[in-house]
C-alpha cells in the first residue's frame, strides 16, 4: 500500500488515530463478550486441567498428570473411536440426503417454498426435544416404529430398537439426519443459487452432460459453501451428546459413549473435574486441527483477493 504524502500532515494523522480508537470502541463489546465467555473460561479450564480437582474438596497440582493419563485410558480411546465412527457415518448420511434435497428445492416449481419449509422444520426443534420425541417413536411398547415394522411384516415380533447396538445406532442416525439435513440443505442451496446461470448454460451448449456439469462446474464453484457445511456438520457430530444421553443413556452396554459424554461422566458422575477439563482441552485441540485440515484440503482462503 502506497502512502500519499498528504497523509503525513498532522491533521490527518490525528483523525486517523481517533478513528482507530473509534474502531476499537465499536468492537469493544464483542471483545469483552469473547473474553468473558470464551477466553477466560478456556484459560480457567487449562488451569483446572493441571490439577487433580474433585468437585468436593481441595484441588491439588499434578502438572501434566491428567494429560498423560489420557493416553492409556481405554474408555477415552473407545469414546474417541466411537465419535469418529459416528461422525463419518452421520456426515456421509447428511450429505447424501441434503445434496439431492438442495437440487430438488433449488429449481422453481410449484409449492417449492412449501417443500423448503417442510424439510427445514425439524431444524427448529431443539436436539433434546427431538431426541425425546424419537425415544417415544422407538419405544417398543407404546411407540410407533416397532409396531409399524411388525404390522408391515418386516419383523416377526416387536423389535426393541434401542436394545442392540446396530438398531439403536441406526435409529440415532436416522433421527439426526431428519433433524439436521434441512439445515445443510439450506446452506447448500445458497451455494447453488450463487452459481451464475450463464455458466451452466454455456456448459450445456458446449455439450457437458449433467454429471460432468456437476463434477466440473457445480462442485468447484461450491467449494466454500461445502467447506462451511462440512465444518459445521463435522464439528457438530464430534460434539454430539444429547442424542446419546437422552435416547440410549450411552447405548446398549456403553457402546455409544461419545467424547463429550465421556467428559460429562468424568466431570459430573465421577467428579474428576480436573481430568474432565484436560479432556475438554484435548477435544478443543482435536477440533481446531480438524477444522484447519479441512480448510486446507478445500483450499478455502487461497482465492481471497
Amino acid at each position: 500500500m502506497t502512502m500519499p504524502a498528504i497523509a503525513s500532515s498532522p491533521a490527518r494523522k490525528r483523525r486517523r488515530r481517533s478513528s482507530g480508537w473509534q474502531g476499537l470502541a465499536y468492537i469493544a463489546p464483542a471483545i469483552a463478550l469473547v473474553t468473558v465467555f470464551f477466553v477466560l473460561p478456556v484459560i480457567f479450564t487449562l488451569w483446572m486441567s493441571l490439577h487433580r480437582w474433585p468437585l468436593l474438596g481441595a484441588p491439588r497440582w499434578i502438572g501434566l498428570g491428567n494429560y498423560l493419563r489420557m493416553f492409556d485410558d481405554a474408555r477415552f480411546l473407545a469414546a474417541l473411536g466411537f465419535t469418529t465412527h459416528y461422525t463419518v457415518v452421520v456426515t456421509i448420511a447428511i450429505f447424501a440426503i441434503a445434496f439431492p434435497l438442495a437440487f430438488f428445492v433449488e429449481k422453481q416449481r410449484p409449492l417449492v417454498s412449501t417443500y423448503r419449509t417442510v424439510i427445514f422444520l425439524p431444524v427448529v426443534v431443539g436436539l433434546a426435544s427431538a431426541s425425546l420425541l424419537w425415544v417415544w417413536l422407538a419405544n417398543v411398547d407404546s411407540g410407533l416404529l416397532s409396531p409399524l415394522l411388525q404390522m408391515l411384516g418386516l419383523t416377526e415380533r416387536r423389535l426393541n430398537l434401542l436394545a442392540t447396538f446396530d438398531t439403536a445406532f441406526l435409529t440415532v442416525i436416522v433421527m439426526v439426519v431428519w433433524k439436521i439435513a434441512g439445515f445443510t440443505m439450506i446452506i447448500l442451496l445458497t451455494g447453488l443459487q450463487a452459481i451464475p446461470t450463464e455458466l451452466t448454460e454455456a456448459a450445456r451448449i458446449d455439450g457437458a452432460r449433467p454429471w460432468q456439469r456437476f463434477r466440473h462446474l457445480t462442485l468447484p464453484l461450491m467449494r466454500r459453501t461445502l467447506a462451511l457445511a462440512l465444518i459445521l456438520s463435522i464439528t457438530g457430530s464430534i460434539l454430539a451428546f444429547d442424542q446419546f444421553y437422552i435416547m440410549t443413556s450411552g447405548g446398549p452396554q456403553n457402546r455409544m459413549i461419545s467424547v463429550v459424554y465421556y467428559i460429562f461422566n468424568q466431570s459430573f458422575v465421577s467428579f474428576n473435574l480436573g481430568y474432565g477439563a484436560a479432556l475438554s482441552i484435548a477435544l478443543l485441540v482435536i477440533l481446531v486441527l480438524i477444522s484447519v485440515i479441512q480448510l486446507w484440503l478445500l483450499k478455502v482462503g487461497d482465492d481471497r483477493p
Partner: peptide, 22 residues
C-alpha cells in the same frame, strides 16, 4: 457407589445388561 453401581455407564449397570441380554 456412584461410579461402581449407580452410574448408567458404570460397570455394574453395563454388566447387568450385557450378561442378561448379551
Amino acid at each position: 457407589f456412584n461410579d461402581l453401581i449407580n452410574s448408567a455407564n458404570g460397570p455394574w449397570a453395563t454388566f447387568i445388561n450385557a450378561a442378561i441380554f448379551g
